[in-house]
Structures are given as C-alpha cells and as structure tokens.
Write a protein that binds this DNA or RNA. Structure first.
Lengths: 162, 162
DNA sequence: CGGTATCCCATTTGATACTG
DNA sequence: CAGTATCAAATGGGATACCG
C-alpha cells in the first residue's frame, strides 16, 4: 500500500496519521499550541528548514487543522492559528507529552509541566470515560470493531495471503 | 536541524516523535494494541512492505516499546508484544483514534468504538486531571515551562536570528 | 521579515525475488 | 511463515540563494 492510500484505511488512527504522521508535523502543531503564530518563529523553534515549515503549514491549512490569517500591518504577513479541528488535537498533544515525560526524560524534570487551574495541582492528565467520568485504561475498555472495519481487515489479510 | 537531533530537543513531544514520528510506526503500534503479534500479520494489516515492517519492529524493540519473544513452536518465529512502555502508549493511541473518529470520519460511524466496562457505555475518552479527577481542557490547564526549556528555546530563537 | 525556488544528496519505500 | 536482499523510483530535506 502506498502512503497516499493510508488515509482511506477503515481506521481512525490511519486517517489521522495520513494528516499528522510526518516527522515535523507534530512539532509544528506543538508550536501552534504554545502560541507560535508567524513563519519565522515556526522555523526557529521547530528547527526545520524553511521549505519544510512552508510545506507543513500548507498541508495543515489544507487539512483544516490551521487557519492562515492575514495580519493587517502592511507587511503582507500571515498568522497560522489553530482551527477548532486543530484545537481539538489538544488531548493528542497532551498525551504524547505525558508519555515522553515519563519514558524519555533526560532526568531534569518535565520540560513543560501542566497545572490544573481547577484544583491548583500540577497534573499529568489521564483518560476518563466521557459518560461516567471515571478514569479508564486499556483494561477497562473493550473495543468494538464495526462491521466495515472487520470486512476491511479480512480483505487486507486475504490479499496478503495470496 | 537534522532529524536525528530532534530527540535531543528539550521537549517531550519532540522526543516522542523521534521514536514514533514516522509514517508507518503508529500503524504498527496500533496493531500491537489490537493484538497482532506475528510478522506476517503486521505486514497484512498495516499495508506496509515487509522491509518497512521489519525496520519498524526493530526500531520499536530497540526503543523499548515492543518486546520480541521467541515462540517455542520449532519454527524459529517470534512474537512482538507491547512492553510496559508500549502499553503506556494507550492514551496516545486512544486520543488519536478519538480525534480521527470526530474529524476524519467517512460517515459510516466509528471504525472501532470503545465501551467502558465500568459503566457499560460506549465512550470517547477525554482527559481528566490525575489529581482531582475532573475533566480538563486547554483552557483549564496552564503550561509551566521549565527553566531549561526556556533557555533552550531562547537559544533556538537566537541562532535562527543570526 | 515572510516566504519561495533550486540544487543535490540522503533516505524511504514499493516491487520483486530470495532464503532458512 | 519469517524475514532479508536488491534495485529502481520517488520522496524528503539540508544548504543556499533569491524575491517582495
């Protein structure tokens, strides 16, 4: 399967990866969450080359994750802001950060801790059921593959067996 | 900055991406969570070429995300299982799936719904504070960059300004 | 400052075949 | 089945330069 076809897999993870599954893309998204808005800041803070940043910003705008807004300062510049779709990536960015904090630490503490304004505590957010509010884990969740996903996977398996 | 140096950024997201930030890697991880264990199943279900699967499994084993266990069936085969580090990626995989469910749907429902065994409901897990248990969002969390991260970013910015 | 264009090298990867 | 080898094609991306 070519990478371009990954977005058509019957799988939300594959579809998401067809948008975000790129070396530099998540760093661009991270910057957007930190508040980076202008091209040169994206270049400076991600460490990616300008054409790479340009390509990623373009793709994220096309995908609807970022909005490109002109800035009226007479300098023909633009700002790249998170759309609602982009802001909704917060849990993804957050869980990635929490995982890195735990497993890829350099021993000098969390680079970017989070404080919950509700309770005042520093937190490493965890998943909770949106119905009952209790914490969930892999053990307390069961997957229910849809018929179309089952069909799709059976087909993948059969094709590979030939 | 070369991609190989991304893992040394003072940022847990960058470090995580240096392990997982690859087109196919997350699909391999997805399969591991679904219960895929053998090489040919990874090839069949991810849709990636065998050398690609081989390389990704190797990298994930080296990174400590997967464990390669020999199977004693006399056929010199191995199983690839999630380590504790790998299992801890569950929230990442889960939030990615939930985002894809919402924003990249094909209109035929969630490919893989989750049911919470605690309350019996189908759920799209959300983030909650690990201290107080309340749901959190970007608005109820404030970031606290560490001194070393601040220094690092200032340095990135200065280098880019030259 | 905010990007784009070009050049060229390194890496990725799809196709195919092969081996234990 | 569980991978590895090879090769060609495509893509990615760093350096540099360029333009409004």
């Amino acid at each position: 399967m070519h990478w371009d076809d990954v977005g058509s897999q019957v799988c939300s993870i594959a579809r998401t990866m067809s948008v975000l599954g790129d070396r530099w893309t998540m760093l661009v998204v991270r910057e957007a969450f930190i508040g980076t808005k202008t091209f040169d800041e994206f270049v400076a803070y991600t460490g990616a080359a300008p054409q790479v940043v340009s390509a990623r910003l373009k793709r994220l705008v096309e995908a609807g994750v970022l909005k490109k807004e002109p800035v009226a300062d007479g300098r023909s510049r633009s700002e790249y802001l998170l759309s609602e779709m982009g802001q909704d990536l917060y849990p993804v960015v957050c869980t990635i950060m929490v995982w890195g904090d735990r497993w890829l630490s350099d021993g000098r503490g969390r680079p970017h801790a989070l404080r919950h304004t509700g309770c005042g505590c520093v937190t490493s957010p965890k998943l909770a059921c949106d119905a009952c509010g209790k914490f969930v884990s892999r053990k307390t969740l069961t997957g229910e593959p849809s018929p179309s996903m089952k069909r799709y996977r059976a087909q993948m398996f059969n094709e590979a067996s030939q």
